[in-house]
């Protein structure tokens, strides 16, 4: 059985299972169900932030910190699928390749495949496989995003938002939504001018926000390109993640429940959408209905309702 191999740590079997989950092979879902009892021990960390902010570089350095502590690290990095070609270039891994031959590190790249929110539909599942395999830390890097890429918060236990100095008044670019999900805020590229100002600005924004239960967001400066060198600040990032985890301690059950709720809701929506698509296909697609609407014989709502009726 493949899941036995996965649980034994067989990399190839695990990678193939992830592939089948990503490709939505029905039998893979059954395998995932069987793996579920083995999940729950890995600590899942989400990394999000502006395009080019240094997320992958930060992940690379975080891997080093965790490896130095003898923790095994799984990474899932998500890049966008082109809506035109359906293809994708998955380039986050480049920054982490020095860990490529470390057997304590498993890096997997995924394309969004049309999913909004900065993750792929399979991200949660792939992270679950890594969890079942016994990885101690599972880091998820989202698509480099504007503002509504907040899905990661629902998947991760600690969400890290990465930004850079020099956004100036544009610091508003990290808009409300993304600030709100941050458990840890990182000002990366602190070797550049304006890092302290960025920290101050973020501090004010958090202060204004006042947020419920979000007062304790730590803001950390970092130079991710310096790896684990003292001046890089990466140790502070890791520490901030740890202290968030500590603070979450008592509420961990609540957070897990919120996470499960969000996941179930997303699955229900996804399954419904799949069923709607299948029903439409079985009925010969949208052409007939659209013709009716164009000819003025039917309004679009009635057309949509007619599809729903036969779900």
């Amino acid at each position: 059985m493949r899941i036995d191999k996965v649980l034994e740590g067989d990399i190839r079997s695990a990678a193939r299972l992830m592939r089948d989950l990503d490709d939505r092979v029905p039998s893979a879902i059954e395998e995932l169900k069987a793996l579920y009892p083995h999940t729950g021990n890995g600590y899942i960390i989400g990394i999000t932030g502006n395009p080019g902010a240094g997320k992958s570089t930060l992940v690379d350095s975080l891997i080093s910190v965790y490896r130095n502590a003898s923790l095994r690290v799984g990474v899932v990095c998500v890049d966008p699928t082109s809506p035109f070609s359906g293809g994708a270039i998955l380039g986050d891994r480049i920054r982490m390749q020095r860990h490529a031959s470390d057997s304590g590190v498993f890096i997997r790249s995924l394309a969004t495949r049309g999913q909004l929110g900065g993750l792929s539909r399979s991200t949660f599942d792939v992270a679950s496989v890594l969890d079942a395999m016994g990885f101690d830390r599972i880091i998820i890097e989202t698509v480099g995003v504007g503002q509504d890429e907040i899905e990661v918060m629902k998947t991760a236990y600690t969400s890290v938002v990465v930004t850079v100095p020099g956004l100036g008044d544009d610091i508003q670019a990290i808009k409300a939504g993304i600030l709100e999900i941050a458990d840890v805020l990182v000002v990366n590229k602190a070797d550049r001018e304006g890092a302290d100002r960025a920290v101050r600005d973020l501090f004010h924004m958090l202060d204004l926000r006042g947020g419920v239960g979000r007062q304790e967001v730590e803001i950390v400066k970092c130079i991710a390109t310096l790896g684990t060198r003292e001046e890089s600040g990466i140790a502070d990032v890791a520490k901030a993640i740890d202290s968030h985890r500590g603070r979450m301690g008592q509420q961990e059950d609540a957070r897990r429940k919120e996470r499960a709720k969000a996941h179930i809701a997303e699955l229900v929506r996804g399954m419904l959408a799949d069923r709607a698509d299948a029903t439409l296909r079985a009925q010969g697609g949208l052409d007939g209905l659209a013709d009716g609407v164009v000819r003025g014989e039917q309004d679009p709502y009635t057309a949509a309702e007619s599809v729903l009726k036969s779900l």
């Binding site: 293809g87 998955l90 891994r93 390749q97 490529a100």
Partner: peptide
Amino acid sequence: LADAGHEVVYTG
């Protein structure tokens, strides 16, 4: 390859 619709992992 991406333009041809494939997913390309680029390792540099």
